[in-house]
Design a protein around this nucleic acid. Sequence first.
RNA 1: GGGCGGUUAGCUCAACUGGUAGAGCAUUCGGUUUACACCCGAAAGGUCAUAGGUUCGAAACCUGUACCGCCCACCA
Length: 874
Amino acid sequence: MKADFSKTYNPGEVESRWYGWWESQGYFRADANSTKPAFAIVMPPPNVTGSLHIGHMLNNTVQDAIIRRKRMQGFNTLWLPGMDHAGIATQWVVERELRKEGKTRQELGREEFVKRVWKWKEEYGGNILRQIRRIGSSCDWSRERFTLDEGLSRAVREVFVRLYEENLIYRSKRLINWCPRCMSAISDLEVKYKSSDSKLYHVRYPVKDKPDEFIEVATTRPETMLGDTAVAVNPEDVRYRGRIGQQIILPLVGREIPLIEDSAVDLKFGTGAVKVTPAHDLADFEIGQRHHLAQISVIGEDATITAEGGVYRGLDRFAARKKIVEDLEAQGFLVKVETLKNNIGECERCSTSVEPLLSTQWFVKIQSLADPAIDAVETGRTEFVPSNWSKTYFEWMRNIRDWCISRQLWWGHRIPAWYCSCGEIIVARVDPVQCSKCGSSELRQDQDVLDTWFSSGLWPFSTLGWPDQTADLKAFYPGSVLVTAYDIIFFWVARMMMLGLKFMNDVPFRAVYITGMIRDAEKQKMSKSKGNVVDPLEICDKFGTDAVRFAFARMGAPGTDIAVSDSLLDSYRFFATKIWNAGRFISQHVAASDRLPSIEELRNTNLALVDRWILARLARATQEVRASMEQYNLHEATRTIYRFFWDEFCSWYLEMTKLHPEQSKATLLYVFESALRLLHPFMPFITEELWQGIPHTGESIVIAPYPELESHADDEKAELHAEMVQDLITKVRNIRAEMNVDAKQTVKLRIASTDAGLAALIDEAKNYIHRLASVESIELVAALSGDRLSAQAVAAGCSIEIPLAGVIDPAAERSRLAKAREKLIQEVAGIQNQLSNPDFVSRAPSEVVDEKKRRQVELQDQIEKLSAGIDRFD
RNA sequence: GGGCGGUUAGCUCAACUGGUAGAGCAUUCGGUUUACACCCGAAAGGUCAUAGGUUCGAAACCUGUACCGCCCACCA
């Protein structure tokens, strides 16, 4: 260990020291041919456009803590990293760059544009991966993948072709969500609904041949009336009895449309009559299908009115709305305008209002894929952590709709379908050169690419070499756990489940660990527009990566959001400093000849009470950490480690061993080294740094064994005795503080006991009491003096007394004792109440009853002893 | 309209399978004890949102209510 380290831990230098070495040593590399049990995690691939954001940091912290522990436990661990090509998002970024140069992708042409995106990817794509290294994530970089690389593209193609061959992929003209800015179809999930203040226009539609009759409809989108092909009412609605079948003249257009009935219409809303526009509204589309209505597309892909819109042709949809409302009003069709709160669908990425359009697209027929995926979670083959997220998953899966997978983009996996002028569609694993039906070589490949999530849905097996039957696939599928935030359960988790079960006949992972979201100190969601985004690398620089990781693990119970604040991060920065200083202290006692003892060696030496105690506490902490980690409760594991390290190891043990550093050195080294190993999955850098500086075996803490429970470390007697000593010290300190005894002033301690065992214990522990409570002498007496110039307390089951002539205020002492007694009296009253209840005694488990009785006796004894102290003043 | 989660000390959060609540920060008091003032010691602070129910016993289980948050949904 370096001799010149600072009193305050300086994480920057230490954190830059180790990662390169770990990686070059190959510690993170998995071995497909290992005989050790496998433990595999695939990293949710970040977008190639991205830089590390705070959510990645949380996600990576959890994964890394899990995988590092498993690695230390001797598993053959694989943490597979990679990136997602992120179709729309990446294309958008590169297009924006082009625009700055005054160009468009259309000017460049498809081939040149895609080249340009690849160039962009090579230049910036690795950025986030470097950042992931920076935060210590122990991934196997030799297996890094990209969703558009050759192997994964082959998997995508194979899956597409197989699904097509099984009729699970089809091409169809249907109503889809269209983003007029992205100029592409988007899936249902990519539409975000935003509550908005809209206007509800009431419009009178005249009835044919009945100049006095009208049907009044209400709409928020009057421009779509150009495409109306019916008006619908609820069959139960008495207002329209006898009018069904009437022909209605569509204002401004003059088209005759029928009045129909359909139970989807809500008779309580508006006038109970709905204009039906099958080509621009999903509900209307469905009504249209039921009634075989014509579908008239009046809004085009660019969101302007089509030729079907007559005089409104070419107007943007919102301009058209304005004009149509004006015209309706001018012609006397507009009845009134109300305000209304409704939800407007927007493109998730660019916030443009989504336009439902009739369009020919590719779809995945989803039901037969969803059923096994539902079953897998129902039967527990894949488990959500925490389990309640499975409800969210079921909710979506049970109401799933076919998945629109084609996107009108250039960046992505091109759809492997070719069209022949004879009408034949060829979907093939190998690019066809001629039509299988007519022999023509004039084939044209589909222009569209696949939804990004189609390829990331294959991630758990495509990254392992599928469709080849590779050794990796055999060793590492299914994965052990997937770590992700709840916002992509539908987008990604559900699709991996469906596709994994379909193509691998097994779930892609045994568990899905759902993390919460990181929020700002006010618990607000972070967003660029709010300006409250915290850059993870900035806080790592400021507080230390280890501290940030520990904070995230400590605060991030599964599924729980974390509010990050400076004060939160500070407390774990202080913890890192604490660890550092403990290491600094210990290093001062380490000689070059020291080596790390085994637990057997320790047990065979004559250990001091405190040594046996700390070993017992270490064993307990180890056991608790194990139990917590097995259930992915990182927040419990970190709490245990924090408490053990700070309160027990530093505050009690280190202070006590200062009396006999040489005698305790072996235990001290053993426990500190073990504590570093317990901590390592959470704080990889500082633990390696300190571990390398003390006696250890092996070359890196990364591959040192994780502490496991050693049964022979159980030592209840040592725990009990140490607690008695600590109780004595604490009570003396308490009296000193309450009575304002000068810190430099030592005191005399008298303990009322004739017990030989206690006498032996006190003899063994007297130096600790002297040192830690500033006691100059300890005397065991048969009875306390009972004078009024001393303070009393009950500790370790005995009355104790500290003579404080000249310092003590008898009134204060009396009230102090009375207060202490009152607390005990209240507790004992509660217990007596229970014990006097015959139902409790007969029905509660006997251990509980016995424990209550034992506690009652103990409390009564303490109360009596305190009472004796109080009686002195009466 | 459905679903999920939350409501515990001033603040941020714990409390494993029911046995009258813990930590960090903040607060008060005392400390230049040679690892650490990013520290040490001591203390104060909670009718666990609310009303019922189950139980010998409820922060925990059940039901209702209030408030907050999130997700889903074809309210024109």
